[in-house]
Amino acid sequence: MSDEREDREQDIDMSDQERDAVTDRLAASARVIHEVVRRRGDEELERPTGSLIWSGLAGGVAISTSVLGQALLESRLPQATWSPLVASIGYTVGFVIVILGNLQLFTESTLSAVLPVATHPSFGNLGRLLRLWSLVFIANMVGTFFIAGLNNYGVIGSPEQRDAMLALSRKLLEHPWFDMVKVAIPAGFLIAAVPWVLPSSRGQQFLVVIFLTYFIALGDFAHVVAGSGEAWLLAFAGETTFAHSAFGIILPALLGNVIGGTGLFALLAHAQVQQEL
């Protein structure tokens, strides 16, 4: 047995510089990535209430630029089959600001904040998770509500930009309740993948965020925070009620995002390394 171990541990003759180069190119194991994300989530769970609220509010404000970015590109592109391929790039703007700026986004915490609870399940950790989720989600909603109101009443932006955002937002009205849940599941999965992939991205964080969030827009998937900005704008413009925005658009999107982010990605990511912890 010891001979087999020695055979596995034998390396070819290399200089120290070459060994360092090999180490730099080794991909992080799933166990290492899990621990990085878990520690990040544990830090978020310990943040003061005021910090979470302000960061979540800033996240809601910043994510509203995703709707603006996609709407502006769509309004300037011709009606062609390739247009969504270009317009979807605009949707990534808000996610770049929020994720790389370390602002609080509810859907991102469906992975990072869940791993500490999955690793050490207890009522205390569950309480910390529910506290984080509730504070961040409410703060995100307040942020998108605030920006939607400012856009609708012309305090920021131009009438042309408001019309472009409304044209984009009307797509949400096409989805019945359960369809909204279904189209929100892939969005939750993709956003939960972001904090999992970032630790091994080796300086390519910008491209990772753009690539994964691009497909949310391209697939017309529903993201609860970005989509809430659209839902509030529709309500402010009188094209639906605030009750329908909250319970007919935001609520099913929230459910789908949690299923995709926590029910699928987070639990599967934890299960693959559970026996190694």
Rank of each mutant, 00 (worst) to 15 (best):
R8A: 13
D11H: 14
I12A: 14
M14K: 15
V22D: 06
T23L: 14
V36L: 12
R39F: 08
R40T: 15
E44F: 05
E44C: 04
E46V: 00
P48A: 03
G50Y: 01
A62N: 04
I63P: 01
I63D: 06
S66F: 08
S66P: 10
A71W: 13
L73R: 11
E74S: 15
A80C: 07
S83E: 13
G90F: 06
Y91C: 03
V96T: 14
I97G: 04
G101S: 10
N102D: 13
L111T: 15
A113T: 12
V114G: 02
A118T: 10
L126S: 05
R128Y: 00
L129N: 02
S134I: 04
L135K: 01
F137M: 03
M141K: 06
A148S: 15
P159E: 10
Q161I: 15
R162L: 12
R162M: 05
D163F: 02
M165K: 02
K171N: 11
F178P: 00
V194Y: 07
V194H: 04
V197Q: 03
L198E: 04
P199L: 02
S201T: 03
R202F: 07
V209Q: 07
T213F: 08
L218M: 08
F221C: 11
V225T: 04
L234G: 03
A246L: 15
G248E: 08
G261Q: 08
T262S: 12
E276T: 12
